[in-house]
Every structure is written in C-alpha cells, then in structure tokens.
Write a protein that binds this DNA or RNA. Structure first.
Lengths: 332, 332
DNA sequence: CTGTTAGCGCCTTCAT
DNA sequence: ATGAAGGCGCTAACAG
C-alpha cells in the first residue's frame, strides 16, 4: 500500500541504507547510484515518512507555539514573525491557542512535548509557578515570547512594557497635559496589563502629578471597552484632557466616543496608545502610539530558539526589543 | 534517560501492554491495576511519545492547515474557527503560511503529508491542476476552505462570492444609485477576486446600467489601495455616487479618502463592502457590508474534515455558507 | 483481565 | 561507497 524505503531499495537494486543516504543528502553516495535511487523514488512516488524518521532520529523539525489567540491582530503578527523565521530554518510550526487560560496553557504545553517538538515558544498572559513546573519537565529548549517568568530563569524576547507606558504618558505631559486618564488592560496580566499601569503611575509620579482613582478604567483590550471607558471619563466633573489607552483598539474606541459626544481629537482631548498595529493609521485622526515591534518579537524569539536547539553559543538569552513613539494626529 | 512504557511496566510490575491500555483508556483493566500503573507513571514522570504512537498506530491526531497569511485578519479568523473545532475533536493543528504562492503551497502540502497528518485543510487563492496533482498523492482526506477547485472534485466550504458582490451592488441600486464604482481585488484569484468582479458586472447588467472601464480599479485588499483607488474616482469628471469595495480594509480607505477631500459619507458618496470583519464597526461612519462568516467557514470545514477522517456518512461535501447584508451607516 | 510478540518506517553504527 | 542489523517507543492482534 504505502511505499517505503524498502520498496525503493528493491526497485533501485541497492540497500535501504543507501536510499536513506540519498534522501538525507549524505555525500557518501556515488552520483550514479544516487541517480538510480532518485529514479526509483520518482517511479514509485515514494514520500519519506517524517514520523518514522522522527522516531529513529529523535528529531521532528517541528516547534510548538503556544499563543493566546490567533485571531488577535497583535498575536497573529507575532505568529507571522515566528513562521517566517521557522520556515527559513526548515522548521514547521504546531500552533495551539490557549486563550490565556492557565490550565489550557499547561495542557497544550504537555501535548506539544508529547509530540516531541524540538523546541517550544510560549506566548501568554503571565508565567506562573505551574508553568515553570511544566517547563521543567521539558528536555527541549523553551523561549518565552512577548512575556517573561517572574524570576527570569527562562530565555525571553519582549519589550519593556512599563517604560513604553511611561514614555506614552510622558509624551502627553510634554504636550502640556495635566489631567491624564488611562484605559488599562487586565491588571492580572503581570507582564503586560500591570506593567503598563505601573508605567502610567510612574509617569504621573515623576512629574509630580496626582494619581486619581477615577482617571483609571479597566478595559478588556477591545474597541467597545474603549468606548465605554471614555464615556465614563466624559461624564466626569473634571474630565481629562488626554487619555492613554493600553492598546490601539481601545484607543480607537476612545476617539470615536469623544467624536460621538461632539468633541474633537486632538483639539479637545488627546489620545495616545501602545501597540501601533495596522489599525493605528486606519482611523481619523490617525493614532499617535508607542510602537511595539510585534513581528520582530516573533522573529527574534524564533531565531533565539533555533540557536538553542542547535546548541549554538548565545550572547544573551534575555532580549528586550526597543519601542518608539510614532507621532501622528491624535495628540497635540 | 527518557522514561518509556517499559520503565513504567517494570515499576508497576505489569506488562507494557497493560500500561498501554491504561494510557489509552482501554476499559479492559482492573481498577486496582490501573491505579498501580498511574502511580508508577506519576512516580517516573512518564510522558507518552506521540511520535512512536503515531508510527505504530498510523494516526497522528494532527491535521495540516495551509493558510495564505496568518497575520491577515480574515484568515486568522478562519484559523480560529478551525482551531476551536479541531480542539473539540482532540486534533492538533500544524499551520503553514504559503503566501498564496503556488510553489510554496505545493511544497507545504507535501511536507504536511510527510508528517503524516490525518487530514488536510487547504486555504489559498486558487486551486490549479498542480494543486490537484499534489492532492491526488494524498491518502488522507482534504477539504478546501474558503476556496474551491475548478471542477469541484474536492470537498469545500465557502460562500458564494459572486452572489455576495451582486447583493452588495444591488443594495446600492436599491438606494437609487446609478453611478457605482468598484475597488476590486486581484482578478487572478479565480475564486475570490474574479468572482466579486463578476458579481459587480452582473448587478449592473441586470439593472440595465452601463459598465464603465474607469469605474473599476484593482487594489490589493489593503487600506492604502482603498485610498488610492478612491482618489482616482474623486478626480473623475463624473464621479461615482457610490463605491463597492471588495473588502473592508479598502472600503475604510475609501471612506477616509472621501472625508479627506471634504465630502461626506454617505451624504455625498455611499460605500459598501464585502467581509464585515471587526474593523467594519470601528470606523465612522460604520461600514455597511455583506457579512462573510469567516469563523464559521473555518469551523464548518474542520467539522467536515473530522467526519471525513472518521469515515462518517456525509450528506454533502460541498457546502456554501450564507452571507447577509449588515446595514450600518456608510450607505444611504 | 493480562502478557507475548510482531511490526510501524526509518536512522545509524559497524563492517566490508 | 555500500550493506547488514539493531533499535527508536508504542500499538495491536493473539493467546491465555
């Protein structure tokens, strides 16, 4: 039924070892023999079985990727970076959504390891002890992507979220704003939501500005929660003159809430965010934002993983990628 | 080094077959024995090797997915649908980007098949003879997702693109528009770009309206090309009163080009599109669009594939999902 | 209910 | 440059 390496060997009149060598580009084969084998392969329509190969060689040329949500623009951009580099090094990707739910994350880590992936890339909200526990049982290298574990024992590629938030708020302060509100993400995301919130607080503090409870709303990173949060701010006695949103989508929501109320951006209220996804230039006014290099985070972490998998020397396994302010028209 | 089923068997004082049964939930094991085995597994930290299992059982519980671009919102939405259902049926996904480039598509189809996936989901621009050629060599089922082959010999899940375009343009006609332009996608995409273009022409024809060369621009599905195309239309002697864009992003670009020129949507020019991705409600005015059920296309095609993989009876292997008009505020 | 015995398709020394 | 032989870790009859 299925044609194996034996069949090819017989057809070509050589041993299976020789066929194996040909298939694996081993130089120790006479060109003439090689040709015979290739012809036999062609004739029989032989296709090597990667599973058998994986069992025998203990390598699958596959890496596992744990991702919170593939349909989220940011993550899919990271995924694209991962894919491109993986491709370049001839690795395939097994992608698993885990919805930022811890138990599901642990579960997929285990199935990925069962599948004998050669390495693992983990993307998620936060890395807890349980995660580390699961990582420990792995005999293959693991790289954290756009996140980190508390004690920094695992290699990671990330940006400095707190600094990014700080820079965003600071830019607002530079523009003369004193009443700056924040639409935050989930504070349980230690590495992300919380860091940006801390960056906001830090910026206020450094500039001797008071922190006000009512100037912070917790959103869910979605457009609608940007609108809701902004509506709340607009009804405040002393409404803010500027808003810092933890991501683009909520910022766009905020802009529209402002415009819907008859006010203008940035004349009446400025809006800034962190992310700079493609949507940032797809609003009017175009969004001023701190740019996170998502594609690069994916690409660099995959590159790091390839080095780890090949036991290459690594200068640094903790890499923090730079962010930058992209000034557009939603601030003044 | 690695602990195998043998080690567990020895530790538990049973045979490897029994361990295998326990691991695979075979009911034919005395509860007491089962308990012993589980304890041994726990003690040794045994993790089943899916590769070995795949070789022995000839099943990998993995399906391959070929996708044009994971960072594209539409496709990642489809991917999410695929993932969710795959998950539900305990399959894992190997995702491969192929950039709509034929040779790359053929290549990943082959590597996926080498990896012994239990089934294949193909998403791409168009399905040529070469694709069919590659499909033929597969011994596992294949489902086309959001596309079809010319002769409809392979199962597919898709929408009726031509009808969708027709309905969009027709809605414009109903609103009293006579001068309707189109921002099209690539006409080489037989199943998609071309079909929508044909739907546009068909709608004009049925309504006895002339087709005009200068009312069609070919974009690349991106925001910027929406802007460029619209600018072109705005400079026409007789500028259109309505525009049909082949996807949301170009439609948003068109809206902004119109607004930037000082005109209003929909008062001066109406805009309609096909897709209804999340971005459609993230513009002002919100976009009227024909909704494509992307998530469902993914989910349904994966469901179809699971049936095929299990040799279940199938009523119909060619499914066309319904689309619908979502009226918002960019048309009048 | 449990154990024995063949493979699954390929890689990899070790000889020749 | 080529061949022979022993696994890789597990499943799946087949016995008992």
């Amino acid at each position: 039924m299925t044609v194996t390496i034996y069949d090819v060997a017989r057809e070509a009149g050589v041993s299976m070892a020789t066929v194996s060598r040909v298939v694996n580009n081993n130089p120790n084969v006479k060109p003439q023999t090689r040709k015979k084998v290739f012809e036999a392969i062609e004739r029989l329509g032989y296709r090597p079985n990667a599973v058998a190969r994986g069992l025998a060689s203990k390598k699958t040329t596959t890496v596992g990727v744990v991702i919170p949500d593939i349909s989220n623009m940011l993550f899919s951009e990271v995924a694209r970076g991962i894919e491109d580099i993986a491709n370049m090094y001839h690795y395939n990707i097994i992608l698993c959504n885990a919805d930022k739910r811890k138990e599901k994350e642990i579960k997929v880590i285990n199935t990925l390891l069962e599948k004998q992936v050669d390495g693992l890339l983990f993307m998620g909200g936060s890395v807890t002890d349980e995660h580390v526990q699961a990582f420990r049982t792995s005999s293959v290298p693991i790289v954290l992507c756009a996140t980190r574990d508390e004690t920094n024992q695992y290699p990671y590629v990330d940006i400095d979220h707190q600094q990014a938030a700080f820079d965003a708020v600071n830019a607002l302060v530079q523009d003369g704003h004193r009443d700056i509100a924040m639409i935050s993400g989930n504070l349980q995301d230690t590495n992300n939501g919380y860091s940006r919130y801390m960056g906001y607080k830090e910026a206020l503090e450094k500039n001797n500005m008071p922190f006000r409870e009512e100037y912070v709303r917790i959103g869910n990173y979605r457009y609608d929660s940007g609108i809701e949060s902004m509506k709340y701010f607009l009804e405040l006695e002393q409404r803010p003159t500027a808003v810092f949103a933890a991501n683009d989508e909520m910022a766009v929501g905020a802009i529209h809430a402002i415009q819907d109320s008859g006010l203008r951006v940035p004349e009446d209220i400025s809006v800034i965010s962190v992310d700079n996804s493609r949507i940032a230039s797809m609003v009017r006014p175009q969004l001023t934002a701190i740019a996170q290099p998502m594609y690069d985070i994916g690409a660099v972490s995959m590159r790091l993983l390839t080095k780890l998998m090949k036991n290459e020397k690594i200068e640094d396994t903790r890499v923090v990628l730079p962010h930058e302010l992209v000034k557009r028209h939603s601030t003044r």
